[in-house]
Amino acid sequence: MKAIITDLDRTLLRTDKSISEYTCAVLKKCHDRGMPLMAATARPERAVLTYRSQVGFDALTTLNGARIILPSGVLENGIAPRSAEAILRRVVDIPDVALSMETGEGAFSNKPIPEWNFRAFEGFPALPTESTIYKILLSHEGETIQPEVERALTPDTYMTVAEGKLIQVMSTAATKWNGIRAMLEAAGIHNREAIYFGDDYDDIEAIKNCGTGVAVSNAIAEALAAADIVAQSNDMDGVAHYIEKNLL
């Protein structure tokens, strides 16, 4: 394998969102041997800066592929403004919906979320900014709203559900796999020469298409079924143990 690519939450990160000293040491050995380290995550760039400095990732796919940070620059796959407005008009009146949006100017929400640095915006379904719309996020404390959100999608958007409750709407061009392909192409590495570690639905395509696809043992059943190999759980530093045993 010429490149290591990993998801962050519930894969490389422990449940408390930390990276162990052991994992950092193993990844440093990979870096020292000239093996590119890449991450693919649903998190925005601002939420991975600490991990980037700890690990020294060479490239990042953030926001499920809506924003890709390469050594040579940034690629963006945002939702078309017309599509974003159409979706917002259809979902804004769902009772008690928590609605937020990741944009090039930061995150906006119909309810203030200071711990996530989301700014309150009362103007939905109008767009809060003219900058790139990366992702629309919806959640509900009561009954599921997935069918209503699915009906609101436009032909150029799709949705995923994270941890069974957070609905994420993105451009069809914004997928982890598209981001991974862009990172590998920039590095001159074929996808069959890369190993991928993941745990959730949005990791399955990469698990299937990379040369080696690894699911941590705490992954969802569908990711475990798609994987070539199952590593130890995220809380047992499964990614690092697999790398140390098989790649170093």
Results as ranks from 00 to 15, higher is better:
Leu127Ala: 05
Lys165Tyr: 13
Ala25Glu: 14
Arg33Leu: 12
Ala3Ser: 07
Glu115Lys: 13
Tyr51Ile: 14
Ala152Val: 07
Ile180Arg: 02
Gly198Asp: 02
Gly34Pro: 05
Asp228Pro: 01
Ser83Phe: 01
Thr144Ile: 04
Glu76Phe: 09
Val97Gly: 00
Trp116Thr: 05
Trp116Cys: 09
Leu37Phe: 15
Ala152Pro: 04
Ala226Tyr: 09
Ala174Cys: 09
Thr41Ala: 03
Tyr242Ala: 02
Asp200Val: 01
Ala227Gly: 05
Ser18Tyr: 05
Phe197Arg: 01
Pro71Ser: 09
Ser72Gln: 14
Val97Cys: 05
Gly56Leu: 05
Asp202Trp: 04
Leu153Pro: 03
Asp58His: 13
Ser83Trp: 06
Asp202His: 00
Ala47Ser: 13
Gly56Val: 01
Glu150Ser: 11
Gly213Ala: 01
Thr144Pro: 05
Tyr196Val: 01
Ser233Trp: 08
Asp96Met: 12
Arg89Met: 10
Arg67Phe: 10
Ile220Gln: 05
Val97Asn: 10
Ile243Asp: 06
Thr23Ala: 14
Thr41Ser: 02
Thr160Leu: 07
Asp16Phe: 10
Leu224Phe: 05
Ser72Phe: 09
Met183Tyr: 10
Asp9His: 03
Ala219Met: 04
Gly164Trp: 07
Glu143Thr: 09
Ile133Cys: 08
Arg43Gly: 06
Asn191Pro: 11
Asn209Thr: 08
Leu127Tyr: 10
Glu45Leu: 15
Ala226Thr: 03
Cys210Glu: 13
Ala219Ser: 08
Ser131Cys: 14
Phe57Ile: 00
Thr50Gly: 09
Pro112His: 10
Ser83Gly: 02
Leu12Met: 14
Ala206Tyr: 05
Ile69Ser: 06
Gly142Tyr: 13
Asn234Val: 04
Lys28Ser: 09
Asn191Ala: 15
Phe57Thr: 04
Arg67Lys: 15
Ala66Phe: 07
Ala120Gln: 14
Ile4Lys: 01
Ala107Cys: 12
Tyr22Trp: 03
Thr129Asn: 05
Thr144Trp: 11
Phe197Trp: 09
Leu137Asp: 03
Thr129Pro: 08
Tyr242Trp: 15
Ala47Glu: 15
Gly142Glu: 13
Asn77His: 13
Ile94Gln: 01
Asp32Ser: 11
Val92Ser: 14
Glu222Ile: 02
Asn178Ser: 11
Leu27Gly: 00
